[in-house]
Write a protein that binds this DNA or RNA. Structure first.
Lengths: 340, 340
DNA sequence: CTGAAAGCGCTTACAG
DNA sequence: CTGAAAGCGCTTACAG
């Protein structure tokens, strides 16, 4: 228990009266080792407070373990990604794995640099929410034998494991909810059009219109970036529309928050003057006033499934890639009113 | 630019017509190398797309570099810590450093395990927001020569660099604001009393009362944990008080959000029926309704300063420890009304 | 079932 | 200014 002065394999071996090879075998749980030997080694390990040097392990071992996992995250300020990270992290920590976090803040160059870093660190695998612009770097990672699981979207030229929400269905449900409440002019403040999920959500929005025989007014679909500032800017744009929409469907968390700032700032009553549904839920949705109706993505679950798939791939690199499409759930609260 | 099949020092050396020692020197920016040699090596590096193996570097080098930084964070779901992580991460990424994240979710055992992991990974240094219960493990880290910077609070038995907010002054300002608005019964929903910052904030709350000759009613200071659920639970408790307070001062982010859920749920008008100030600000404070008045901690700045101090300590391990006390700022918005 | 030895990809005295 | 060689702390065939 007491922290000890640097003790390595050598010290443990000496203390247990075996060779370092045997100690190594015990550490790696090889079953060949005789029970009595194993016990002796383990007690020496405990006695000396020995901790393997992971850099040395990583350098020497021939096959990947599950010790170091790299994360490539577009925006750590987005609560959705925090949920994902939480899901990954709790599973990782329960399995003794460590996480390297690469938050590239939607910056392609930083993303590239992080991919290089993950290589340099010899991570055992990565979980990435990549953007189309850096796709080929992620593909390179896979070609070079790194286990990779994609979040939010797959790759273009390569099959890979992917875990994502059913964006179209989620957006459909949100839009349908508004339509059933009688709304006919529903603005959609979409996320960055460079991001594929934005298009899937737009598709859901349109599909709902078609289903209910409502014409889609393309002028009602506006977008810029996927951040808070764009939410503010685009909400202002909605308010200036000649024929003001009676409802807004926002494409993500940050946009929702930005829109709320504008609506509250203009003292616009929600839902009486404008109803709202947002994509992405937050644990404090009830702290908003009114509590906002939202399409919940199960970020924690997505993260959890992603790392589970990653571990499986590390064990079995040739396993055929799978796609997990996680359902969303419409959380009906107060921002749309309570009935048609 | 194209990703290449594993190229190591050896390949670069061969391509540049020098020894691997020279290549290593170029990589490490040693100034002894002749200009012409350096150029040749660098072009070989670029040509082969060489990336140093960090595990090998870490294993071999005698002094700490700034490549791998460990983070010990109590709760990644708390926006304050996200800000801190952002500040650390952006600085790290700009300096080619990688970050290992250890989110222990307020769990002492997980914190201890993470500390061990950071040792195992041979991190170059750590930034830790530790709890009193695991203090001795962090102290062990320092004794064993790991550069450590503390956030939020220092250590008991050991001097170390520390970066933290001026909690007492911040809490004083929040309370004073309410008092000046005429409030005499101000409840304080404090964070977990095991956490020292909670006490500092309580002290500020009390100091403001004394300054303005108001008796402190200890029954008005309630606490449990520092999370959302406690915010909910304690707000309910406030509502049940025989003589209901006219204002609430919450001890952190999560508590604020929990309290808001309750107040909105009970349709209690803020600030007319109950005024509110929270410790900790969020970038979406204006998305709340009413926009909440809050004591802003400069989390991003704190993170930034912490990693800067850490890098300095790595360079100069014997430098005497310093404390950076970062000012807070009262962000006056709408949750207290607009004047006495 | 266990040990001696080679070697992972680097860095660093030590010579020259 | 540069190279040959030792070695960081491990893992892994290869013998036995």
């Amino acid at each position: 228990m007491a922290a000890n002065i640097k003790s390595g394999l050598k010290e443990v071996a000496r203390s247990a009266g075996v060779s370092i090879a045997t100690v190594s075998r015990v550490i790696n749980g090889e079953t060949v080792v005789k029970e009595a030997t194993r016990l002796a080694v383990n007690s020496a390990i405990k006695k000396l407070g020995y901790r393997p040097n992971r850099a040395a392990q990583r350098l020497r071992s021939t096959h990947r373990s599950r010790k170091l996992i790299g994360l490539l995250i577009p925006d750590i300020q987005n609560p959705y990604y925090i949920d994902i990270i939480s899901g990954i992290e709790s599973y990782a920590s329960a399995h003794g794995a460590t996480i390297i976090i690469g938050n590239f803040s939607q910056d392609a160059q930083r993303e590239r640099i992080y991919i290089d870093t993950l290589r340099s660190e010899s991570v055992d695998g990565c979980i990435v929410a990549t953007t189309p612009r850096t796709e080929k770097y992620v593909e390179g990672l896979i070609r070079d034998g790194f286990p990779v699981v994609c979040i939010d979207r797959g790759l273009k030229n390569l099959k890979s494991d992917v875990v994502k929400s059913d964006n179209e269905t989620g957006a459909f449900a949100a839009t349908e909810h508004l339509i059933k409440l009688g709304h006919k002019r529903i603005a959609h403040i979409a996320g960055d059009l460079q991001i594929p999920t934005s298009h899937e959500r737009i598709a859901g929005y349109k599909a709902a219109h078609q289903q209910y025989k409502l014409r889609v007014d393309e002028g009602l679909i506006i977008s810029k970036h996927s951040n808070y500032e764009s939410g503010v800017e685009l909400a202002l744009q909605v308010l200036k529309m000649k024929k003001r929409p009676t409802a807004i469907f926002t494409g993500n968390n940050l946009l929702t928050l930005g829109v709320l700032e504008v609506l509250h700032g203009h003292a616009i009553k929600i839902p009486q003057e404008i109803a709202m549904v947002g994509f992405d839920d937050v644990y404090w949705a009830n702290s908003l006033n009114p509590a906002v109706t939202a399409v919940k993505q199960f970020g924690y679950e997505i993260g959890h499934q992603a790392i589970e798939l990653l571990f499986k791939r590390i064990e079995e690199p040739q396993r055929p890639p799978v796609s997990h499409i996680v359902n969303t759930q419409l959380m009906v609260r107060k921002s749309c009113g309570t009935g048609s």
